[in-house]
Every structure is written in structure tokens, then in C-alpha cells.
């Protein structure tokens, strides 16, 4: 098994923590993991991305960065940045996107319309029909989304084998110190949401 995940969002959304939890879980499962965070402009409201690559073969050598069409899974925490990352998605890959838009000042002032999640789904349809939109995310988005992802992967295990809500919950318990109870509650809600999403 060799899978690549591309996570994208904006500074302050918890993209890096999300990626760290996935990588940590994979590592705990005895898988080989690499992680590349691009967060140079995070503090300034800029784009943040994480590239995670997971292999079951420890002898398999691979680079930390993804190339175009390299992502089996694309996770978006912000609509605009997700659509900007389309080229990274593999044809037929899995997309999980939160319905959250951060409209830049210049667009507000010029009264331009920001893409909606339905428009984004339409754009992604040229590459995949495995598109999961999270219409009503809960804060903190990263933990909620991790729950949603866990539930989806339980129903589509070939997308990323071995990932379960129960396992991810354990990783959260070991990794997050602050507001653990609250985070676990939101994570559980994410799992429930993910079960509905993958069932529908």
C-alpha cells in the first residue's frame, strides 16, 4: 500500500495538527510515513498545505512531495484553497471538503462572488465522483473533519486501509493535551456525521 494525502486550508484552521494526527496514527500502525508542511505564510492568513505519504513497505523509498495527480485523498478546510489544489488530485481520488469560505478583502471590496461548494463539486467532477462535502462543520474543524474522514474510510477502506474512528480517537487522546474532552466530543460528532455522509 502506498497512499498520498494532500491537506489544504488557511493559517489558523489547524491543517498542520490535522496532518500530524493522521501521520501519527499511521506511524503508530507501523506504517512508513513522511510529512511535508508548507506553512510559511500561515500567520498572515495565507495558504497552508500538508503532504502526507504513507507506505506499508518500509523499504520503499519515496520523496516527501507530491506531484500533480499524486493525491489519493484531498482534504480541504477552505473552499477556495481546495479548488486551487485540484491539480494534485489523482483521477478517481477521494475529496473531503468543509463548506467554509474565507473571502479575501479584495473580493469583498470588488463585490466579486466567491465559489460555492456546489460549484467546487462541479469543478472536481471532471476528475472524480467521490466527493464528500461537509455542509455543517463543527469547531474545531480539524478534529471534526478527522472524525468525518475516519467514518468515510471505514466505509471505503480501499481508499486508505486500516483507518478507523476508534483508532484515530486513540491518537487524539495521546497527542492532544489541551481541551481534550471537548476535542473528543467534536471528533465523535464528526464520526457520526461521516457515517451519515458515506451512507447517503
Amino acid at each position: 500500500m502506498f497512499k498520498s494525502i494532500f491537506v489544504t486550508g488557511l493559517g489558523g484552521q489547524g491543517v498542520i495538527t490535522f496532518a500530524k494526527l493522521i501521520a501519527g496514527y499511521a506511524s503508530d500502525q507501523g506504517l512508513k510515513v513522511s510529512l511535508f508542511n508548507s506553512k510559511g505564510m500561515a500567520q498572515r492568513g495565507g495558504r497552508v498545505t500538508s503532504e502526507i505519504r504513507i507506505s506499508s513497505d518500509h523499504n520503499f523509498v519515496y520523496g516527501a512531495r507530491l506531484s500533480a495527480g499524486g493525491a489519493d485523498i484531498l482534504i480541504g478546510m477552505e473552499i477556495g484553497e481546495a479548488v486551487n489544489s485540484l491539480s494534485f488530485l489523482k483521477t478517481g481520488g477521494l475529496v473531503l471538503l468543509i463548506n467554509h469560505a474565507f473571502v479575501p478583502t479584495s473580493m469583498i471590496l470588488r463585490k466579486e462572488t466567491y465559489p460555492s461548494i456546489d460549484q467546487v463539486r462541479e469543478v472536481f467532477s471532471q476528475k472524480t465522483d467521490r466527493f464528500f462535502g461537509v455542509a455543517e462543520p463543527k469547531h474545531p474543524y480539524n478534529v471534526f473533519l478527522l472524525g468525518v474522514l475516519g467514518a468515510i474510510l471505514e466505509s471505503l477502506p480501499e481508499a486508505l486501509p486500516g483507518f478507523t474512528c476508534k483508532g484515530l480517537e486513540q491518537t487524539i487522546k495521546l497527542s492532544l493535551k489541551r481541551d481534550l474532552e471537548e476535542n473528543l466530543r467534536v471528533f465523535q460528532e464528526g464520526c457520526v456525521y461521516g457515517v451519515q455522509l458515506s451512507g447517503s
Binding site: G46, V83, S87, F102, P104, Y114
Partner: peptide, 16 residues
Amino acid sequence: EGSKEAITVKHPITFC
């Protein structure tokens, strides 16, 4: 096969 990014959004960096 290149995919066309039908929509692109720019989040310009600014002061925090």
C-alpha cells in the same frame, strides 16, 4: 492529463 482549474481563488498575504 492536466486538469483545468476552472475557478481559482487568491488569498493574498497581509499583515496579521
